[in-house]
Design a protein around this nucleic acid. Structure first.
Length: 195
DNA sequence: TAGAGGATTGAT
DNA sequence: TCAATCCTCTAC
């Protein structure tokens, strides 16, 4: 079942980041469907320094974060990796959830081909890797998450509160104190969580 | 318009 | 620990 628009409109990005654990991300590109269960996320908000839209500073790159929740924010990191985010909250309130790792569900052979490997290990266990596996790139920036190309769904996977572990976010030392916020969420003991 | 640096990754 | 790789943002 597609996640409803109201799921994204909520004014609490960390809650949404938690709720996304155990949901599924799908893509359908050239008729090929690939999907994975979300096992790791990070929340970002205009209120803190880790965020591209800190202090509500809008640039050409982050503009989609200021749009209505329920869109994709995809940008290039370190010159070679596309990172996929779920835009949340209402128009003008720049918040997003970075999807950091997936457990492969559907189209595993297609994902292996895109990763250039013969086995399924570790092909979606990181934010740069999962976009490659699902075929997501910057052409998907701004795409609605209820579209035919990219969508998020509840597949009936149940996650208990105790199965979600919070910790500081990765790779944002430049954010000072805000780097300590426990805004990274993982599905406990899942082998697909990033290193 | 130049220069610095980055929400990563995999090899050393 | 380090380089790959190039886009984005800031400052001049």
């Amino acid at each position: 079942m597609l996640l409803p628009e109201a799921f994204y409109y909520r004014n609490d990005v960390t809650r949404i980041a938690r709720d996304l654990i155990g949901k599924a991300l799908y893509t359908r590109l050239d008729g090929e469907i690939t999907a994975g269960l979300i096992v790791e996320t990070e929340a970002y908000s205009w209120k803190e320094r880790g965020c591209h839209a800190y202090d509500s500073r809008m640039t050409q790159r982050n503009a989609v974060m200021f749009d209505e929740g329920g869109h994709a924010y995809v940008y290039l990191c370190y010159g070679m990796y596309n990172l996929f985010n779920v835009v949340t909250n209402r128009k003008g309130k720049a918040e997003a959830v970075l999807i950091r790792a997936l457990e492969p569900m559907e189209g595993v052979n297609i994902m292996q081909d895109r990763a250039g490997v013969q086995h399924s290990k570790r092909i979606t266990s990181g934010p740069g890797k999962l976009t490659r596996a699902l075929g997501i790139d910057r052409t998907h920036n701004g795409v609605p998450l209820r579209s035919r190309q990219v969508w998020l769904a509840d597949v009936g996977y149940k996650v208990g509160k105790k199965e979600i572990v919070a910790s500081p976010r990765i790779g944002i030392d430049y954010a000072g104190e805000d780097a300590q916020l426990p805004w990274r969420f993982i599905l406990k003991d899942n082998e697909w969580v990033s290193k």
